[in-house]
Design a protein around this nucleic acid. Sequence first.
RNA 1: GGAGGCGUGGCAGAGUGGUCGAAUGCACUGGUCUUGAAAACCAGCAUACUUAACGGUAUCGGGGGUUCGAAUCCCUCCGCCUCCGCCA
Length: 425
Amino acid sequence: MLEIQKIRQETADVVQRLTDKKVKDAEEKVTQILEADNERREWLIKLEQNRAEMNKIAKSIGQLMKSGQKEAAEAAKAQTAQIKADIKEYEEKVRLVEEKTQELLYSLPNLPHSSVPVGDHAEDNETIYQNDVKVEFSFKPQPHWELAKKHDIIDWERGVKLTGAGFPVYKGQGARLQRALITFFLDQAAEAGYTEIQPPLIINETSGYGTGQLPDKDGQMYHIGRDGFYLIPTAEVPITNLFRNEILKADQLPQKMCGYTPCFRREAGSYGAHVKGLNRLHQFDKVELVQIVHPEKSYEVLEQMTSYVERLLTQLGMPFRRLLLCTGDSSFTSAKTFDLEVFSAAQERWLEVSSISNFETYQSNRLKLRFRGEDKKTHLVHTLNGSALALPRIVASILENNQLEDGRIAVPEVLRPYTGFEFIG
RNA sequence: GGAGGCGUGGCAGAGUGGUCGAAUGCACUGGUCUUGAAAACCAGCAUACUUAACGGUAUCGGGGGUUCGAAUCCCUCCGCCUCCGCCA
């Protein structure tokens, strides 16, 4: 959520950047917010004046009662009725206009950082880096869903029986490969100084609002109607919410955390060849990095986190590239996002395996997550997160890029201590 | 699931209808003193909104109510503790 003070003080700039972000009618929306906010303050002042008056009378009644002037006290009571009614009226007005302001603010995405290219679609993203790993075959490579079937390591059909499409069952070497990846990623993160967190997989509504999944992505989460909870779509939600409503000491920053969790996504509206196999699932595993940092450090940290994830891909021997997402393609809540994509030679396409974002104060403003600065005042922190990494497309890439002519699949060196085997099949 | 108790500032802990945003202690910050430190003493020490400023308003787990006035009374939700039941 954008800070209202910022919208007030830097109106023109905010409108421009929202327009860059491809928000329709940005100027109109901002004007509406400012009008609502002005109205709010007008009513608030009236409300508070009345309350002050009321407090004054109440106090004087107390004095009169104490000194035994009963009649004077009763007389004072009589004049409170009108003020009381006014207070009620103003309270209602303030409540309504606050609700409206809030709703409008929720509807605005984050402002893009100045270094983010302005663009509409994925085609406008900038390729920042591409490594020189090449995967070439002397035979016709098979897509991962064929390979998984052949080696009997992923069972889609029985997953459908248990739950539905998008809930695969991993078995044997497939299950072991998953577990190896999770442990490898967690070990690496620990070495890089991230504290491992095992959060709840179910969150309440407030947490959903805190990181921005609610209200705009309500349809993408699984809702547990009976208790009003949600299944987490990513570990980002519980981990970033850990410090909601807290004021951290300066020396508590940065908070570097990582966590492995399954992720649950309804993926309503997705269909077609791009969701085949492991490309898009309703339940998948992911190790997530979250950092809560001093505002001055956040872009430095974004770079550190991204290079960290690139190192993981390098260790796995994957051909990958780094994209800087353009304004139109980066997420609602992000100020700047890098995507890392692995090239799948068999599918002949790039698969997004990680997305690393700086949210600046967009999340912390909702979370009321602040720190006390050198000036002794409270300031909003900056929050960042990134996948390190999401498993399904990594598994797909390993299967597809590491397949051998005899049909076996070579496990990347770094994973062998974790899998206990060198080849699948 | 049943019965009872409790939820106050960073922590501990007073306060059961009237200058209570809240005693006191500890912690913390600044100052005096000291060669330095400790001790002692003095001062400060929640958050948010609002105002050009003085100031004002709200917050004692959350929400609602009674009252001229609520930390204090009532309702409700949440959480914690104790006992019983059940259970991995």
